[in-house]
Design a protein around this nucleic acid. Structure first.
Length: 414
RNA sequence: GGAGAGAUGGCUGAGCGGUCUAAGGCAGCGGUCUUGAAAACCGCCGUAGGUUCCACCUACCGUGGGUUCGAAUCCCACUCUCUCCGCCA
């Protein structure tokens, strides 16, 4: 969400941005409503001022009472119209995408993302590499069949050493992020509508959300929702910024409409797990904080020994809340392709305006903070470990950095 | 889940139909005093929106409605917090 004043002062720019981002809000109609709304504010406020003035006279001048009574009818009508108009404007504004960085490439989908760099050496196998699903099944560490039996298709178990490896990775990642100045949270895994709306998941991704029947609660799609929502309606001291937060939570997504897409393995599932990076910062610092999160993501993958590439996400592949976004795609030798494992978005003031998260500095300057939302690691990275560290005998070697946390060096077939 | 109490500015705390943006205190900011600091004294000290923008107007006392010429104050609903009881990882 951007300041509506921007639209008043720079209509063509806002229109062009909406067009480029495929937003179907009628910006001209919105601007017209806003114009009418501004006029109504003036009328209503003038009427209120007059009413307030007359009300003060009522005790000594009974006639004023009658005047105000008739005024109230007109005022009431105008107030109703104003409220309705405001609701319509807010509804339309909630669908308006964020502005875009100049550095965002054009393009329609992920094939148009601009590859920035390749890092790490792809493993070379003297045998036919398997994908993580096959590896996981053979080692008995991924169980999708029972996930479907107990919950539903799209759920799975990490079992035995697979679960140990996964937990080791998350524990290690949290420790690394804490060492980089992040505060660790254990977060609620449900959130209310306002929180999902405020973080931009509503109204844009409403069909991805699991709602709790009869309650104003939904399962979180990411801890971004609860970590950013943490400061809802707060004014942060500028000198306390940037605030760096991390949490490890499950993430729930209905994946409605994506059946058959990446259905192999546990790539697209209804529940996965994630260590998140969130930064609240001053507007001028957000580009640097965005880069900082990328550095952290890369560091984690490098330490794990996963080859990857970084892409600058194109306009067509970026969600409406984003201003600029980097994805990291890990190399999956079993699949024989790069696949998205992390994403890192500078949301500028899109979320902070919706959630009313502001900053105030010593000079009394105020504004909305910027937020950065980035992945740390997810279950997909464990899949990448399985595929990149597989051996000819079917075993999987544990990355060096995780061994202190797993207590074993290799996962071997029984 | 049952019973009770309460939600006012950064905090504390008055306010019970008009003189309320809201007393008093604390914290904070500026000044006097002082070699400097403390103390004392004086002044300032909410947010947002609108406009004819060094000024004025409007809104906001948990949220949403209602009564009234006029609501922090009266009525209704909701939310949240606290205390006690029950249950429980």
């Amino acid at each position: 969400m951007f300041d509506i004043k921007l639209m008043r002062e720079n209509l063509e720019m806002v229109k062009a941005n909406a067009l480029r981002r495929g937003c179907d809000v009628d910006v001209d109609a919105l601007a017209a409503m806003d114009k009418e709304y501004l006029g109504l504010i003036k009328e209503v406020e003038d009427l209120r001022a007059e009413r307030n003035r007359l009300s003060k006279e009522c005790q000594k001048n009974p006639e004023a009472r009658e005047i105000v009574k008739t005024m109230k009818v007109t005022l009431g009508e105008k107030e109703t119209r104003m409220t309705e108009l405001k609701a319509k404007i807010d509804e339309q504004m909630s669908w308006m995408p964020n502005l875009l960085s100049d550095e965002v490439p054009d393009g329609a989908d992920d094939k148009d993302n601009a590859v920035i760099k390749h890092v790490g050496k792809k493993p070379e196998f003297a045998f036919k590499g398997l994908d993580h699903q096959e590896i996981g099944e053979k080692l008995g560490i991924i169980d999708t069949a029972r996930g479907a039996k107990v919950a539903a298709s799209g759920f799975y178990y990490w079992v035995g050493k697979g679960a140990q490896l996964t937990q080791a990775m998350y524990f290690w990642a949290q420790k690394e992020l804490v060492a980089r100045g992040f505060t660790l949270f254990m977060s609620p895994c449900l959130a209310k509508e306002r929180t999902l709306y405020g973080t931009g998941y509503l109204p844009f991704f409403s069909d991805q959300t699991y709602l709790i029947q009869g309650e104003d609660l939904a399962l979180i799609g990411t801890s971004e929702q609860t970590l950013v929502g943490y400061h809802t309606d707060e004014t942060l001291e500028a000198e306390s910024l940037p605030l760096r937060y991390t949490a490890y939570t499950p993430c729930f997504r209905t994946e409605a409409g994506s059946y058959g897409k990446e259905s192999r393995g546990i790539f697209r599932v209804h529940q996965f797990h994630k260590v998140e990076q969130i930064i609240f910062c001053l507007p001028e610092d957000s580009p640097a904080c965005h880069e900082e999160c990328l550095v952290n993501e890369e560091y984690l993958l490098q330490q794990l020994g996963i080859p990857y590439r970084v892409v600058n996400v194109c306009v067509g592949d970026m969600g409406a809340p984003g201003y600029k976004k980097y994805d990291i795609e890990a190399w999956y030798p079993g699949f024989g392709s790069y696949r998205e494992v992390t994403s890192n978005t500078n949301l500028t003031e899109f979320q902070s305006r919706r959630l009313n998260i502001r900053y105030k500095d010593k000079e009394g300057n105020r504004g909305f903070v910027h937020t950065i939302s980035a992945t740390g690691l997810t279950d997909r990275v464990v899949c990448a470990i399985l595929e990149n560290y597989q051996q000819e005998d079917g075993s999987v070697v544990v990355p060096e950095v995780l061994r202190p946390y797993t207590g074993f060096d290799v996962i071997a077939p029984n």
